[in-house]
Design a protein around this nucleic acid. Structure first.
Length: 425
DNA sequence: TCTGGGGTCCTAGGACCC
DNA sequence: TCTGGGGTCCTAGGACCC
């Protein structure tokens, strides 16, 4: 029985979020910057139309943005995360199976939808937009890769009005031919370049290649893409949350950092975030990795980068233990007289908190009876009264290394003090 | 002055085991 | 002149994704 997968994708998601509480920005060019106001990472259609490039450094296109009177925002993940949850909430309410793929995308299984997938998708799109203000596009295909491809087509062709069902198309090959090879999901810039040299210019050309050749040159991942384009599902569909296998928290600094004390503070702060994510998915970590590096864009300056692995005797989710491990790693690899740009932590060797083998090392003092209730209390307070209501002294107070966010919009939906105010007369 | 952050999967090669 | 065969685990690096 052939499947019908839908890919629901929010249009210009971060830019659309900035408009949610600023309706006067509709029809105006809007861009959103990465952390530290570094690069342009989201653009409204109007910003794309005036030629603002994706991914380029903000300081390089400041003049252009000003000339076109583009509205510029620092990224506001509190807002985007919350609006994402609302969009996903609508999808899970109406679709039988939903796989949340990223902050702005989800797959849904629309096989055997009464009334047909296309009609259902149009209704779904209208509901998401009415309830959240976020515009979405929906592509439907017999595999995830083809649903992605259909989604791109839905976005680019006004006649689709935001929804395109490849399984109901009279000429699916034409849609494949229209899709450039580099725009196929799973084919990145490297493979695209190689393929173009061989005259493989679009999804249709690729689909008709020999499978053993593709497997040899592009490993089984390339083979999966090939088969998916032929309509054979190779990528699994996971409704429900999937636990991460690694958790990373890292940031570039707002200014160059040379002092060990600042690096230790930042490390504690990042580990606090990583450990929160770890507990949220109810895992424990048995391995910590810390890393730091100088600014690789500064070609004239002395460069240094290093990483330190720290195996833990007992897998844990206890923030102070994880902070101590990470800081010991930083002390090991720190060198004086370098201007550091970034550091970070990674947790790996993750296992479910319950349902793993215990050993005698799990006893005190490695695992004290008070540790778990302490972390539960900290998490509960921070959930109820806001992030960092309770925090660890090791992460400091107002370190000047913290990131730059000079054009941040209010956290309209997650912080009481920043709620939208409306005048009624 | 100013260039993001967080993931996954695959393969090759080294270390180590019997 | 001559130096096995078969495994596992780990890490680094490449490629891709949002």
């Amino acid at each position: 029985m052939p499947k019908s997968y839908a890919l629901i994708d929010c249009n210009n998601f971060y830019a659309s979020c900035e408009r949610a509480f600023r309706p006067e920005l509709k029809g105006r060019p809007v861009v959103v910057l990465s952390n530290n106001d570094g690069c342009i990472i989201a653009r409204s259609n109007e910003a794309k139309a005036v030629g603002v490039p994706m991914g380029s450094p903000y300081y390089k296109c400041r003049g252009q943005l000003k000339r076109h009177r583009v509205e510029v925002f620092s990224s506001n993940y509190a807002l985007y995360g919350d609006l994402s949850a609302r969009v996903m909430g609508v999808l899970t309410r109406f679709c039988p199976g939903v796989e949340i793929y990223s902050i702005d995308e989800a797959f849904a299984d629309l096989t055997n939808m009464p009334g047909g997938a296309d009609a259902f998708a149009r209704q779904l799109k209208a509901t998401v937009e009415t309830w959240t203000t976020i515009p979405v596009s929906i592509g439907i295909g017999p595999t995830k890769t083809l649903a992605k491809l259909a989604n791109r087509f839905a976005k680019k062709h006004p006649r689709c009005r935001g929804v395109f069902d490849l399984t109901a198309s009279p000429a699916p090959d034409l849609i494949l031919k229209w899709t450039e090879i580099g725009d196929v999901w799973g084919i990145g810039p490297r493979h695209a370049k190689r393929l173009r040299k061989l005259g493989v210019n679009n999804a249709l050309d690729f689909r008709d290649l020999r499978r053993d050749w593709v497997q040899k040159k592009m490993t089984v991942t390339g083979l999966h893409t090939l088969l998916e384009l032929r309509g054979m599902p190779c990528l699994g569909f996971a409704s429900g949350p999937v636990s991460k296998k690694t958790i990373v928290s890292s940031r570039s600094f707002g200014r160059p950092v040379t002092r060990l004390e600042d690096l230790l503070e930042a490390t504690a702060q990042y580990m606090t975030r990583a450990a929160e994510k770890l507990r949220r998915q109810e895992s424990v970590a048995s391995h910590v990795l810390v890393f730091l590096h100088t600014n690789t864009f500064k070609l004239g300056e002395p460069q240094y980068s290093n990483a330190a692995p720290i195996p833990l005797p007992v897998a844990t989710q206890h923030t102070p233990t994880l902070i101590r491990a990470a800081q010991s790693g930083i002390e090991r690899i720190y060198k004086e007289d370098y201007a550091f740009k970034k550091c970070g932590v990674m947790l790996s060797g993750l296992e479910p908190k319950n349902g793993r083998w215990l050993n005698f090392l799990d006893l005190p003092p490695n695992n004290r009876p008070g540790d778990a209730p302490l972390m539960q209390t900290v998490d509960a307070c921070n959930t109820r009264w806001g992030r960092d209501t309770l925090k660890f002294g090791a992460s400091g107070n107002d370190g000047t290394w913290r990131m730059k966010r000079e054009m941040c919009s209010p956290r309209y939906t997650t912080v009481w003090e920043e709620l939208l105010e409306v005048m009624a007369e």
